[in-house]
Design a protein around this nucleic acid. Structure first.
Lengths: 230, 230
DNA sequence: CGTAGCATTGATGTGGGTCAACGTATGTGG
DNA sequence: CCACATACGTTGACCCACATCAATGCTACG
């Protein structure tokens, strides 16, 4: 790894406040690799050999079972993935593929585990990463159980619009991915968008315009369910 | 806290390998309280004042939104709860209530956080707890997305039967709770049990007899989805 | 241009929720 | 010991959200 890269990584939340010697040891055998869109980074069911940290790009966690496939989350920089599998040293529960061209840091799982034991700051930072993902996925489960697909979509739009900070914005991902993200089919997404036309959403192609007040009345957003997102 | 209690707690996975002085500081202001079945321990939406560790009993994490309520998980000893909220110092995403008479240790959230920063062993143990819960809930999300309610039930029965280690066993929780746990209505649970009669399950009252081979053929269990359970 | 994605639309099927009625225990007090 | 209440489970009728399958439209781009 080049020293410029090392410098970049040093500033990542995961390594904030970590002792120099621990940082050096943890990153000694680390590698950085560039990935093309659509490449599979890892497959569920294997023991984790590395911890992965997304430096840039976009990555999808998904899983398949009995002919079905489901998207569990997206990861954006500076997120890490399969932290829980590395921490417990158990098989990965998800597969990972790149959505966009991505640069990914990989650190030997064993080095991570010994780093956790050596430096409380590192363990605290890694645990924080894990806690954030835990909360993300918990929100997702609540979302799934207590809202209809159309409501999920409505709340996603509200969040996305809030991020873009303009009433009109264009979808950052293709609709097929959005459907997967929301746990619904493409067809149903299309219909749901039509339903939302009656509640403050207008769209032409991938450009969305939101009347927040109307959409909020429909969506009932809640900070206990709508969190950090793609 | 009595020294006998302190001794008990010292042996908990959360405090395995923690330095004595850190242990003393973390547990200095800790309290143990006994709870009756059905008591609400904490309500979602509040900032966590304590970390809770279940010493014995059974506790349910649940959430409500827009007139609906959903059970997110059960916690059995020696599990901790709202670890993620304490770690991130963000509002709790779930409410907690006791199912059975329970004894619960509570430790000031601030003491936990400073303990994390002081002792790598403690941070590692707390992170392990978090990682285990993360994986539980991830499995639950996969379960929810890729299986029907009846399949979820079938796999739950397989797991429960495996624990009991006899072909015949009686349900450890009332059916209404089981339905909540599986994310379905009581009515649907009843129907699902009837469906499973054709696949190796026979029941009279709350006593279940499972023909593993037949049920496995229906349920398609997977270690990537069926994990530690109630 | 044609053809290869993607998105929409329609027709139809089904898992599972909802509501109401009916059973089946396990009490409690007369 | 029986009448009754209360809680829990089952069954049936019905409905709705969402998936599935198939056809069609839309854009893009070699």
């Amino acid at each position: 790894m080049r020293t410029a890269d090392q410098h970049l990584i040093r500033g990542f939340p995961l390594f904030r406040g970590v002792q120099d010697d621990v940082f050096d040891r943890v990153t000694a055998s680390a590698q950085i690799r560039d990935w093309q869109p659509g490449e599979t980074v890892l497959v569920e069911g294997e023991k984790p050999a590395w911890l992965f940290v997304l430096l840039n790009g976009l990555v999808e966690a998904f899983s398949g079972h009995g002919g079905k496939e489901t998207t569990l989350s997206f990861v954006r920089p500076p997120g890490a993935f399969i932290m829980a599998a590395v921490w417990t040293d158990q098989v990965q529960l998800t597969s990972i593929r790149t959505i966009e061209k991505s640069r990914i840091l990989q650190i030997p799982a064993e080095d991570i585990r010994s780093g956790l034991a050596q430096d409380a700051s590192f363990a605290k930072a890694a645990g924080l990463e894990l806690a954030i993902r835990y909360r993300d996925i918990l929100r997702e489960l609540k979302n799934q159980r207590m809202r209809s697909a159309t409501e999920r979509l409505a709340n996603w739009l509200l969040l996305e619009q809030e991020i873009s900070n303009t009433p009109s914005f264009s979808l950052p991902i293709p609709k097929s991915l959005l459907a997967a993200r929301l746990g619904m089919t493409n067809e149903h997404l299309s219909r749901s968008l039509n339903i939302l036309r009656d509640h403050g959403v207008s769209l032409s192609g991938s450009v969305i315009t939101v009347d927040r007040k109307a959409l909020i009345a429909y969506a009932h957003p809640s900070i206990l369910m709508d969190g950090a997102d793609i």
